[in-house]
Design a binder for these strands. Structure first.
Lengths: 347, 347
DNA sequence: TGCGAAATTTAAAACGTTTGCAATTCCACA
DNA sequence: TGTGGAATTGCAAACGTTTTAAATTTCGCA
């Protein structure tokens, strides 16, 4: 017997009260007699009453949901990013009784289309936007609508303020450089991607800034670029860097996946990490623990960041006029065994 | 200028038509003149009209959402399961215009409470249930309500039918045994968990069945059990098995995370994998590629399974009276380098 | 005993959509 | 020019809740 859903009307009828009174009693309004409130609460609990979300949303204009548009992903998810991210969001949302909507973009569909749909159908009270692109129409759209959102990541420059939380990749890459420099490295390699995401600039600029700060003209930086999802091209780019007659002694990769490729190809080329080559990544993916000799990397604590993003978003939803919130999270170095003193200079 | 949301009423007014007609025109009803339908569609597109979800849900009784209650997870997610799973669900749902709701259980809250809330608030038209426990109140509840759901996993026995999709762990473990037996192994170890999840029985039974099928009385099986999230206890249990005077020559782990621990501890104990010890896991997590010498394991293609689960659920939602759907997916062996011929018998 | 203010409760409208049924328009044909 | 039936459109109720404004009850005090 599929139990029917209890409605406010039924509850009111069974109590001999009006719908209004029951609604207010459950909302805890002071104007309802204490005795009545208790009686109603008791009956509601017993009947297992749960308010209908649609009806509540319709009248209040609040859905109690926060949206996340799933980035269209390649066939190979290599990390636990998404899992950690939604887990963190969930943790941040649950104390406020808010749930998460995951909207997926179809193969041939732009993310912005899905975003618009989520926003304009009233499914969500706010959204989280990840993977910020150099020119990001999503932020412009949300901004134009005045719709609450928090970005995970930043634009390089913008003529408007918005709420964001970002990992301080610039600082991390500076830290990586300083550490490697102090270990004697002077010739550096950076492996990066060709996709127009802002974080690649932020990190590369952080590296460049640290180099400039040091003011040592003997420091040299090579850059290798490959498309994010083209494994073949990536391997090629890495090998071009490794096979060069004068190759770097230390390679910093934009993120661990690239760093792992560097380590694999280095081994294949007969190099020993870290004796011949230091490698540093970013993200602290699980594989970085297991890939010999253990990848030195940075941990950005995605789950914790996501939780904070959720909290920021709830704040913004509650008060749309508030000053823009921004948080820059400094990742922590996870030193493992893939970096070491620079090899003696050849020649 | 935060653009307002267009409503049906406004659209109707601007067209000089009634709300009814516009609604029907957009729904493509034949009874509306073709010319009108086109005119309305055009105007709707131009105005960027998106129907309000709450209103539609309220009257139709369909929310256009499918729910997933996030399992409460320990501090350390080690795999990409959740990410792959929600990605797969999204892929299966998006062609039908359905989205996914992720509800998180608070720390002190039972999963069933959240599930009840999702179901009874009308937020979702159906739910996906994962990680089936030996005695699973969620299935009983959903069954009792007649609420559409698909289980990822199975009960060991049940007095009712339901929709499920499961990975054929029994078959995989049988396959692992056969392969190892043919390589000369006679003394086996199974590392499993103490949590009352059904899959541990299914897999262990599959192993036992394969042993029985072989009918070789010299085959021996040791079992080590530890709590899922207690790393210390797990290491202890593994070591007890490895340190035993007469240790197994082949260890099958309930899943990769355990297998990785076995490999780590084996190395620490001075054993060579696979020369002294064969290890086989299950799940094909990313780390299994990188953990030396490369873990032989089974791939259950979570993403594909999740997609199918989504499709099954949509079928069930569309026709609640349909026969129960069940799918048993055979995982594929991913042979890497952690297994090999049995070492010569000592003594 | 009656008055007025305070305390408590209720009727009714509103949110934006879908849908059963009724009303209107159109057109072919007599 | 009128008629009937088909084609097209519109009215109004309904979904379950919140909320404004108004009605009713209660109670202290003269």
């Amino acid at each position: 017997m599929p139990a029917r859903v209890t409605t406010l009307k039924e509850l009111a009828a069974s109590l001999g009260l009006s719908i209004t009174t029951v609604s207010r009693a459950l909302a805890g309004h002071q104007q309802i007699a204490l005795k009545t409130r208790e009686r109603v609460a008791q009956a509601a609990r017993q009947a297992g009453y749960v308010p209908n979300t649609a009806a509540r949303t319709l009248v209040s204009g609040r859905s109690g949901f926060v949206g996340l548009v799933l980035p269209i992903r390649g066939p190979n998810l290599v990390d636990s990013f998404l899992g950690e991210f939604v887990t963190g969001l969930g943790e941040g949302l649950v104390p406020h009784g808010t749930d998460l909507i995951l909207a997926t973009a179809a193969q041939d569909q732009a993310e912005i289309t899905v975003l618009r749909h989520v926003v304009e159908s009233g499914r969500a009270d706010g959204v989280v936007v990840t993977r910020i692109a150099e020119v990001d129409e999503r932020l412009a759209y949300l901004r134009g609508r005045g719709f609450p959102f928090v970005a995970h990541g930043r634009l390089l420059d913008s003529d408007f303020d918005y709420n964001w939380l970002d990992t301080d990749g610039a600082h991390a890459f500076g830290e990586a450089f300083d550490m490697l420099y102090d270990l004697g490295h002077r010739h550096f390699g950076l492996v990066t991607i060709s996709e127009p995401m802002t974080f690649r600039h932020l990190r590369q600029d952080g590296l460049a800034a640290a180099i400039a700060r040091r003011g040592d003209p003997s420091v040299r930086l090579d850059v290798a670029t490959a498309p994010r999802f083209d494994r073949g091209a990536r391997i090629q780019a890495v090998n071009r860097m490794l096979q060069a007659p004068d190759r770097p002694t230390a390679i910093v990769a934009l993120f661990d996946e690239l760093a792992l490729t560097v380590m694999e190809e280095a081994v294949r080329a007969g190099l020993n990490v870290p004796r011949d080559l230091s490698v540093i990544g970013f993200d602290n993916v699980v594989a970085s623990v297991y890939a010999p000799p253990g990848l030195t990397t940075f941990d950005a604590s995605i789950r914790q960041c996501a939780r904070e993003i959720a909290e920021m978003l709830l704040t913004v939803i509650a008060d749309k006029t508030a000053e823009p919130l921004t948080r820059l999270i400094r990742p922590t170095l996870v030193p493992r065994a893939s970096h070491g003193v620079a090899p003696r200079t050849r020649s």
